[in-house]
Amino acid sequence: MTEQVFDAALALLVMGVGAWSMMAGRITSAVIIFIVYGLLLSLVWVRIAAIDVALTEAAIGSGATGMLLIAAAYKTGRESGARETVSGSLHVIAVLLASSVALGLASLAFVLPGEPVSLAGDVLRSLPDSGLGNPVAGVLFVYRSFDTLLEKIVLLVALLGVWSLGSDRDWGGIPGLKPFAQKHSVLVLLARTLPPIGLTYAIYMTWVGADVPGGAFQGGTVLAAMWVLVMLAGVRQIPRLSSPALRAAIVAGPVVFLAIGFLGFVSPGQFLAYPQGFAKPLIVAMEIALTLSIGVILGLLSAGPSNGKDAR
């Protein structure tokens, strides 16, 4: 009973806050409400027994996306201020369209086929062969590792896309992120005290991801958050985008992933297959490299394209 009341309240809250973020007057408020929405949504994910997704939603869906959106809202949202919408009849049509989509999907809940299809049994049956304990990590790195590889490539392409939007002669310079370099501010204090804790936590998240919820993505996001904090506070200089160490960190994850993938041709005879008995150490090695790359890529995505300083 208590659980049902909690679920009902949570569902209402998520819908309400979601609607609020669509209706909010100022664009910056809308973004901040959206971040709150993301955090509430991760509670929903916990309630439907998807802890890995809850962590990803809180870290990426709410945190990292929110960070980009806030920066964009302050940069581009100023001149229009109030919420501008289409007028009159178009608005009515949009409401009708949106509510019919929502009602149509909602009604599907009552006509879904009675016997749910599940691959949970299959996943658990062959999970011990990989040495992993977390079934979601098993799916990500064993059964559907090709998806996971391509997902990292998508991140890489996104970063290239963001970089390409700077002008050609600025290529490889210092990103346009402006540090708030005020001495003795709280931000500087946080940027000096939090990173050791954050770093430890990121390593922990990555390490335990093989057996319990967590993993490279969640760990990498914590890493990125710490780095962005350091860059924003001006505690450390933002590196040049052409710096070889930076480029190496960006591609480390995909390169290790691909190398282990090609190793599969040698030992079990298939791309992205792991040699018997070595699955877990190889996966953990991949996750460590991926954590580094994800942290750096996410940090650079928020830092934006080069502003031309120190370009070459």
Binding site: V14, M15, G18, A19, M22, I27, A30, V31, L69, A72, A73, T76, G77, S80, R83, E84, T85, V86, L90, H91, A94, V95, L97, A98, S99, V101, A102, L103, G104, L105, A106, L108, A109
Partner: peptide
């Protein structure tokens, strides 16, 4: 379902691309 509906509404009626 309600969130998808809200999203469709938001994409169609809002003028500002960030919204």
């Amino acid at each position: 379902s309600a969130l998808i509906g809200l999203g469709v509404y938001g994409i169609t009626v809002n003028r500002h691309p960030l919204r």
